[in-house]
Design a protein around this nucleic acid. Structure first.
Length: 521
DNA sequence: CGATTTTGACCTGCGC
DNA sequence: GCGCAGGTCAAAATCG
């Protein structure tokens, strides 16, 4: 097995490095002629004629071979058995090579998509920060915004702060999560890319490519090194900074083994983690081939009713509305963390600390920038009532912005954009309502939009969780009470989504689509 | 029958 | 170098 894998890697490396050549060769050069083996008469001949591709040829070949079992012994084979043997070997090797190449191409595409997504998010964050700096040398966001927005913001923030409560001390979790990487070199990958800002316009962004690739891990080391080297050339000194993987951890009470986040996941492993009697399950997103997003699910050792779900990576595919919010928030948070760490981790913290320290509700999110991965933890466990209060102004920004960004996003990246950017803009003014963000291992820096994203994320996550039928049932009462008392009415207890994109944000000014709705899996 | 889960082996990093 | 722990792989089993 081990050898098996190693071989694979080697193949990939080699083939990938020359992939272009290989491709062109494969697509242009006539493949080894199957005609030699399967003369005219049967169906396979026509197949062959139609397929001048690569792998198809081989498949056809195989297929043909099966069809010809009755004649395989000799009839269809040319007299010179040696040649045919050689050809077969060639074909097989070619097939292998093509498979490897295909894999490499997929991986490359994935990497590009991932980088694209993260860079987009980071760009916006960076722009946001820049804007802040320009507009006011001062720290806290005195961002002037559309009054409307401000109103919304306030309410949003209120909701948020109320919603979640205590800081979760996830040091343990963080430590566990971040302890290993296993793909270190990937962590140093720096990229300078052209990213599409959603309007088809490309922006050249120098940035630190993010994490998810690490979890993707399918890229060959050589390739990574090459990319890294290239990136270093372009980026320069920035590469000195340690690369980090951002993770978003969600703590929520749930009977269900998984929280419903709108995505399809496939379990690929399970492990007993030290210090926790409950196994940790590893899932990867299966909504698209090669999607790098993974998550770990584990029950809290202290309180087994608490389910800890940790996400990493950005989806490289369009997301269903039900998944958009979660994905965008988590990926945005991840990007944010990365961005923060890129520039100065401290900035993240300070904003958190100084900014939110006065918040009465303590916190609902924990930022852990501890090495090697910054992790943002959302604690949705403490006060269900609060936890559900997010909805009303869940989307401070006009739907056409957030939803459009999230939903209309053609592929991967765009879904990142909506919330982090817009939320940050709008939430800043209402600092007092911000959640407390606690930095585990780093000193405080100064403000930025970290908290903002955190906030939105919490809401999103809460919404996602709420959409889970099981969890929904458990929280129904709480929601009802909130709705009843909170002045948001619409659905009353019915606010709880039953499934399929029912909005859980009763009071939402704009019918929250996409981002604000969740479907159960 | 394809997709998913299970599960033991393996890989890698880290501390001693 | 060794052992430990987290993370991943992939064959086998199971599911729908």
């Amino acid at each position: 097995m081990e050898n098996h894998r190693r071989h694979h890697h080697h193949h990939r490396e080699l083939t990938f490095l020359s992939s272009n050549d290989s491709i062109s060769r494969n697509t242009t050069d006539p493949p080894i002629k199957e005609m030699d083996f399967f003369p005219s008469s049967n169906n396979s001949a026509s197949h062959d004629n139609n397929n001048n591709g690569t792998s198809d040829d081989h498949q056809d070949h195989d297929h043909t071979g099966l069809n010809l079992t009755f004649a395989s012994a000799g009839i269809s084979r040319p007299p010179n058995g040696e040649n045919s043997q050689t050809e077969m070997i060639k074909l097989e090797s070619e097939l292998r090579r093509l498979h490897e190449e295909n894999n490499m191409l997929k991986n490359t595409l994935d990497q590009i998509s991932k980088s694209y997504s993260q860079l987009q998010a980071q760009l916006f964050i960076a722009l946001q920060n820049q804007k802040h700096h320009q507009e006011n040398g001062v720290v806290s966001g005195q961002k002037t915004m559309d009054p409307k927005v401000d109103v919304n913001d306030a309410s949003v923030c209120d909701d948020k702060t109320e919603r979640e409560v205590s800081v979760s001390n996830n040091a343990e979790e963080d430590a566990i999560m971040s302890k290993k990487d296993g793909h270190k070199h990937q962590n140093h990958l720096m990229t300078k890319q052209l990213i599409d800002n959603g309007n088809g316009k490309q922006v050249c962004l120098e940035e630190r490519s993010s994490s998810q690739q690490s979890w993707g891990s399918s890229k060959s080391p050589k390739l990574e090194e090459e990319e890294e080297a290239k990136a270093k050339e372009q980026v320069g000194a920035a590469d000195q900074l340690p690369f980090r993987k951002a993770r978003v951890s969600v703590r929520a009470r749930s009977e269900a083994p998984l929280i419903s986040d709108g995505c399809q996941w496939r379990k690929y492993g399970q492990k007993m983690a030290k210090g926790n009697p409950c196994p940790r399950a590893y899932y990867r997103c299966t909504m698209a081939v090669g999607c790098p997003v993974r998550k770990q699910v584990q029950r809290c050792a202290d309180d087994k009713t608490i389910l800890i779900t940790t996400y990493e990576g950005n989806h490289n595919h369009p997301l269903p509305p039900a998944a958009t919010a979660m994905a965008s928030t988590t990926s945005a948070a991840a990007a944010m963390l990365l961005s923060g760490s890129t520039h100065s981790k401290e900035s993240l913290t300070t904003s958190a600390g100084s900014y939110f320290s006065s918040i009465p509700y303590a916190s609902m999110a924990t930022l852990s920038a501890s090495a090697p991965f910054p992790t943002i933890t959302l604690d949705l466990t403490q006060n269900p009532n609060n936890a559900m209060q997010l909805h009303p102004k869940y989307f401070p920004l006009p739907l056409h912005q957030s939803a459009a960004a999230a939903v209309a996003a053609p592929v991967s990246g765009p879904h990142l954009l909506g919330q982090p950017l817009f939320f940050s803009q709008k939430l800043l003014p209402t600092a007092s309502a911000m959640p407390l963000v606690h930095h585990h291992h780093h000193q405080l820096g100064q403000r930025n939009n970290t908290s903002t994203t955190t906030t939105s994320m919490v809401e999103t996550v809460s919404a996602a969780i709420a959409s889970d039928p099981n969890f929904t049932a458990a929280l129904a009462a709480a929601i009802s009470s909130i709705i009843g008392s909170g002045g948001n009415s619409n659905n009353g207890s019915g606010a709880v989504p039953h499934s399929n994109g029912v909005s859980i944000f009763p009071g939402s000014p704009q019918p929250p689509q996409s981002c604000t709705t969740f479907s159960t899996n």
